[in-house]
Design a protein around this nucleic acid. Structure first.
Lengths: 225, 225
DNA sequence: CATATTTTGTACCTATAGGTAAAGAAAGAA
DNA sequence: TTCTTTCTTTACCTATAGGTACAAAATATG
């Protein structure tokens, strides 16, 4: 028994399921035993999951939907993501880091503010009505489906709303400094109004989908500034 | 055989399931045989169903939820309403005929328009955040859950939105006639903006539920008129 | 009272939700 | 080549969704 310990460099004790804790890439750099590599790209899979949840919502999306759309087996799905809810969180974070971020970055660009706001809202109209179908805004859809009933999702949506509102506020303040907007306007109030208008517009886009009405909202929102 | 036909007033042929076609009250007035009366009030039941669907959405509401909240057996439930979806339609129609109608009627009242708009929006904030919990607007929730995926529900929501927008437009035009608003403003555009703002505000109410932010939206929306 | 009809309660049904278990495949390390 | 690990596949599991079927109860009429 003791002899086993003495025969050269003993292997470290086995810890099954280590991949859940230590990233495989990190393990590799330490020369620890590797496992079978994934046959799919988890980042791509999360993107596809985002599309499904965005279109159908959380409750209406079934494991079978995910298996079909991600193109992987159910075992791989649950091995990689743990649960439907965990995958939903990943999908919502992906939305935040792509779609929601893109809006904020667009609003942060220099130059005249009014055309910037117009192009931002028109971009979103096209996104909502685009070739992927009338799906609206994933954050808005999640707010109305899970708001107040799912802490994690609600928190993610709240922070997206706040960041967007902040970007609007900064844009308005920029416009005030350059003389584009009246300097006595309350930038906070204007930003809250812009956020509410944008959110409402995206709900209406999902319900009605008519470009003429949506365009009128954009015109009126900009005229109100 | 022929004798049967001759013996006095023959009963009409039996048609089981007649109650689905002919209202029991009408049958009664014709002296036709009655069945066992309902032990519950269907109107009350639809009201309770509205509350459940409003809070949880369509997909997340189960038959068991309905049985629990309506306080009737599953047999009675399906006998009276046919299917979950049919009951959902009844619930949405009830919302239209109570909540949505109340808003339109409020907006139709005479008098100064600006305080009317303010009290309307503040009423909705209280409804959304009220003692029944942070449930937002049933029509908005349905728009984002089923918009474009359920023809009947989407149509109901569209018509509610259009009726509300129309009430806003008439209020604005009234304000223009009395000199409260500039007569050169586009009343259609103003109404579309008010609708979008209101809808967005109710989404934010469901996601965040803070009265200060919602109040700021109301202030800014009225200041923009 | 028997009859016709409807509601109700209970039992039952099929399909699927949302996973879990276990065996074999695929990789690097020793 | 064997060992260790992770991934994949297939099979399996329990609970419930969303109803349906049927017998018994409740009503009105003849």
């Amino acid at each position: 028994m003791v002899g086993r310990l003495a025969t050269g460099a003993a292997r470290p004790p086995r810890v099954p399921g280590l991949a859940k804790i230590i990233d495989p890439q990190v393990k590799k750099s330490y020369g620890l035993p590797m496992g079978r590599p994934k046959q799919f790209d988890p980042d791509v899979a999360v993107g596809k999951a985002m599309d499904v949840f965005w279109r159908k919502g959380y409750a209406a999306t079934t494991p079978q939907d995910l298996v079909d759309e991600l193109g992987i087996g159910k075992g791989s799905l649950y091995n990689a993501f743990g649960s439907k809810h965990a995958l939903f969180e990943r999908a919502l974070e992906r939305y935040r880091d792509t779609q929601s971020l893109a809006l904020v970055e667009l609003l942060d660009q220099p130059g005249p503010v009014r055309p910037l706001l117009r192009s931002a809202m028109e971009l979103l109209i096209e996104t909502d009505l685009g070739p992927s179908g009338r799906r609206g805004c994933f954050a808005v859809n999640t707010a109305t489906e899970l708001g107040g009933r799912d802490e994690v999702s609600t928190g993610l949506v709240q922070r997206m709303f706040e960041r967007t509102e902040g970007a609007f506020r900064e844009a308005v303040e920029r416009g005030q400094r350059t003389g584009e907007f009246a300097p006595d306007r309350d930038a906070d109030a204007a930003a809250s109004l812009l956020l509410a208008t944008l959110v409402g517009m995206r709900v209406i886009a999902r319900a009605q989908g008519g470009r003429e009405r949506l365009g009128r909202i954009v015109d009126a929102a900009l005229a109100a500034l």
